[in-house]
Design a protein around this nucleic acid. Structure first.
Lengths: 195, 195
DNA sequence: GTCTATATGAGGATAGAC
DNA sequence: GTCTATCCTCATATAGAC
């Protein structure tokens, strides 16, 4: 039961991740120092190395955690049905999942170049997996005859870019609710691949 | 006629901009040092300060030059006509202009946070100008009754995000020509705002 | 215009005391 | 687990010689 005085591993760990996420999203990985992160956590820089072997691992862990959560959440959401239903579900899921995670999404897209080659490959694999989810839906819809597009791969990338772009201008407490935004985007998505 | 030996201002200047553009796009502004840039130019770091007052100005000049070229080029291209013609022209222009400028576009989107507040405001103004070009077209199309969308601002941002996203996956010598890509995207754009 | 040399500071990471 | 102190490297920017 007794816990050593000064032992805060269950507090400092999450605080470290949270501070790193916020600071990296705001200033960029290269521009943020371990000292800055430590200051936000409330410890000295040296103490951070009890929680991460180095700065690179810190970035990698943030990105992998984000991608894992994304894939797991989509796995739960994906429930079959017609291609049209599945595409609507994907559209709304993507918006609902990404909107409250502005920092994570920003980092996942902007800091790829700061990953070591091995770490980059791993994150890239997870991203491909997610893209494959949408690609499957579009392929199914084409087979059903409810979707039409010239190129499957381009349609996939174009839709993801369109939906993710929302994060660059969305601000909480804006003039539209998330539900309204979902519906507006669903209208654009649906028509863009309509027969 | 005579030129002092060792005077290379007309060579080193452009070389500096070119090296900075490439390195910043690859590694990020914060991660690139003046020494790295100088090495690529072929001079010592101190010599760069004959061409730029500081690192921040270097970034700002790159971004402003890019936005100026973009706005000037679109100004030439924009020739009136029906909203449908104008939207097709915008779509093809955006792709044709941005595709060969991967580094510039990347920097323009990724390094905004590394601009000083004043510089940020100026670049942001130019970006808004460009967005307003598309917004005008969509508004005109709605008035003509040839376009339909729920929200003008979202439609504008969604289309720009979709088109610009192309830069993240396009590789020269891929399986599709630029002309083919233009047509494929135009199909997606046209349908997404169709009545 | 470019060089070398340097001022001045900050960076990541580690060692050893508590 | 955290602290202080420190190593070592690298950064931007400037000064003055050529």
């Amino acid at each position: 039961m007794a816990r050593k005085q000064g032992s805060h591993s269950d507090i400092t760990g999450p605080k470290l991740r949270k501070a790193a996420r916020r600071l990296i999203a705001q200033h960029g990985f290269a521009a943020v120092s371990m000292r800055q992160i430590a200051a936000e956590v409330g410890v000295q820089a040296g103490a951070l190395y009890n929680y991460t072997p180095d700065k690179q691992s810190l970035l990698f862990d943030l990105m992998r955690e984000h991608m894992d959560e994304l894939l797991t959440a989509w796995d739960v959401e994906e429930k079959g049905g017609s291609a049209l239903e599945r595409l609507e579900r994907f559209t709304r899921f993507h918006i609902r999942f990404n909107l409250p995670r502005a920092d994570e999404v920003f980092i996942a897209y902007m800091e790829l170049r700061n990953l070591s080659p091995e770490n980059f490959a791993e994150i890239e694999k997870l991203r491909r997996q997610y893209e494959a989810g949408l690609e499957d839906i579009l392929r199914a819809g084409e087979a059903e005859g409810v979707f039409a597009f010239t190129d499957l791969r381009i349609a996939t990338m174009a839709l993801i870019a369109m939906l993710t772009g929302l994060n660059t201008w969305y601000r909480e407490n804006g003039r539209l609710s998330v539900a309204e935004i979902e519906t507006i985007y669903w209208d654009l998505v649906r028509k863009s691949v309509a027969v």
